[in-house]
Simulated scan of single mutants.
Amino acid sequence: MAFDAGKFLKTPDLEGFDNLKKEELVLLAKHLKLDFKVSMRKQIIKNLVIDKLVDAEILGEEALELKVENIGRL
C-alpha cells in the first residue's frame, strides 16, 4: 500500500514515524513543503521532518529523541 502523508498526519504515531523508509520521509517532507533535496541522507530528512512536526505540535517533544545530531559520522 502506498504511503499517504495526509493520512499519517491525521493520526501520527511516533513508532510508525520512526519506522518510515526514506521514500516515505521524502513524501512526508514534500507534503510539509520542507526545503530539502532527495539526495540528502535519510537521517537529515528525518531531522527536518521531526523539527517541523514538533513545531506544528503534530508530534510531541519526545520525538526530538529520534534526532541524530552528528550525522557526518553515520
Rank of each mutant, 00 (worst) to 15 (best):
H31G: 06
V38Y: 08
L27E: 15
L9M: 10
K33D: 15
D13T: 00
E23A: 14
K7P: 00
L32K: 01
V38H: 07
L28V: 05
F17S: 01
V26T: 05
K22T: 08
P12T: 03
H31N: 12
G6K: 10
V38D: 15
D18V: 09
V38S: 12
F17N: 06
L9H: 09
K33I: 00
D13I: 06
K22W: 09
K22D: 12
D13L: 04
D18G: 04
N19V: 03
L34Q: 11
K21N: 09
A29L: 11
F17M: 05
D13W: 01
L28Q: 05
L14N: 06
E24Q: 15
G6C: 03
D18Q: 14
K22M: 06
K10F: 02
K22Q: 11
D35L: 06
P12I: 03
K10A: 07
L14A: 02
L20A: 07
K7V: 06
F36K: 11
K21R: 14
K30F: 12
L9G: 07
H31T: 05
E15V: 10
H31P: 01
K10Q: 14
L20C: 11
L32Q: 06
L14Y: 05
H31A: 05
E15C: 00
K7I: 05
K33P: 04
L25P: 01
K30S: 14
H31M: 02
E23Y: 05
L34N: 11
N19E: 15
A29V: 04
F8G: 01
L34P: 08
E15Y: 04
L9K: 08
A29Y: 11
L32E: 07
D35P: 05
K10I: 01
K30R: 14
D13H: 11
V26I: 15
P12F: 10
T11M: 10
K37Y: 04
L34H: 07
E15I: 13
L28S: 00
V26P: 02
E24P: 04
K33W: 01
G6R: 07
N19Y: 09
K30H: 09
N19H: 12
L28C: 06
L20H: 05
K10L: 12
D18N: 15
L27Y: 11
F36M: 10
K10P: 02
F8W: 05
A29P: 08
P12E: 12
H31Y: 15
D18L: 02
A29K: 07
F17I: 10
D35T: 09
D13C: 12
L34V: 08
V38T: 13
V38I: 15
K7Q: 10
L32G: 08
K22L: 00
P12W: 13
K30E: 15
N19Q: 13
L14Q: 02
D18Y: 10
L9Q: 08
V38Q: 14
G16P: 00
V26C: 00
E23D: 13
F36A: 00
E23F: 07
K37P: 01
D35Y: 07
K33H: 12
L25G: 05
L14P: 00
D13K: 13
K33F: 09
F8T: 01
T11P: 00
K30A: 13
F36N: 11
L28N: 04
E15G: 01
L32F: 13
N19T: 06
F17W: 11
V38W: 07
L20I: 09
K37Q: 13
E15N: 08
E24C: 06
G6Q: 09
L25Q: 08
K22A: 01
V26L: 11
P12G: 01
L20Y: 08
L9A: 10
